[in-house]
Nucleic acid binder design. Sequence first.
DNA 1: AACTCGGGGGG
DNA 2: CCCCCAGAGTT
Length: 356
Amino acid sequence: MQLFERKLENEFRKALISWYLEEKRDLPWRRTSNPYYIWVSEVMLQQTRVDTVIPYYERFIERFPSLADLAYAKEEDVLKMWEGLGYYSRARNLQAGVKEVVEEYGSWIPETRKDISKLKGVGPYTAGAVLSIAFDVPEHAVDGNVMRVLSRILLIEEDIAIPRTRKIFEEVVMALIDKEDPSSFNQGLMELGATICTPRPKCLLCPVRDFCTAFHEGRQEELPVKSKKVKMKTVPMHSIAIRNTEGKWLLTQRPSKGLLANMWEFPMVENIPVSLEDMVKTEFGMNIGSLAPLTEFRHVFSHLTWEMKSYMAVTDDAAPEGFEFFSTEEVEALPKAVPVMKIWDEVKNRLFVKKT
DNA sequence: AACTCGGGGGG
DNA sequence: CCCCCAGAGTT
């Protein structure tokens, strides 16, 4: 595949890499050559901004400093370190992949795309990112940034919302990638997309604008082409923080698959046909006292919105099947998704903060 | 190919 | 309000 003239390809690589080496941000995972740490960072960075990831990355590698530390950690401890970061299956898949490396590969991360791609949670992007950054293997690592950058430079007008379009960009990268420094080349494309070739590009600062077809034609704002999907359900949710006579709280663990898998939460019901108290009676077979309203807020997922209403109540009953009572300290230690943490924070404010 | 899966930052 | 982010797994 010939993208520019041969000489221009060399100039492009040189311009991109020298800009990257000069201007790259000082990020924690750029201060290490440990392939395991780079792997962790790439998984955390899936669909997640750099600034969000930094504190999670620091705490995670401090808590699980080696492949073996993560491989044999309790899943609950792993989820706790991931708490608030979202896409919790990433955490479980990362641990499964790491365990596989420890037990099947003698703690050596595979250095070919074929083998590393077999690991749980390692898709086409993460495979190429780890191979190129940690092992200097000239492999493509195509993410949203790379598609935005290259769609402009080469005026590629394919719809990036369609999965097979990514293959076009993978071929482009393989044709363009710098064989001497694939790490800086791939990271340079991503760094450019993250800092300059953003959705609203800052072309006057761009180190490769001379190579950019979209810039020459003044069409950079039109790219990349991305068809939009429109569907967003809203579900009313009611959550009740129920305390027993010992001052313990009733929680349940979500199923091991699906939304917020294995995270803990207070009893929740989707609708209230008549009264919420009756709903609790029929759903959980439990008697609770009067409900005290706690908080109301919206929690937006990718494809779903919860309209949360939360309450507090007390009970004399034992925990129903599938539920457990936990002390305040125990609740604190359980991995909880953000909407649950919001409710829990409000509970603590009401009960444990001295009112003036 | 279409759906599912979190959460937050920025225009 | 909207978009979209260093994507992957499942169906």
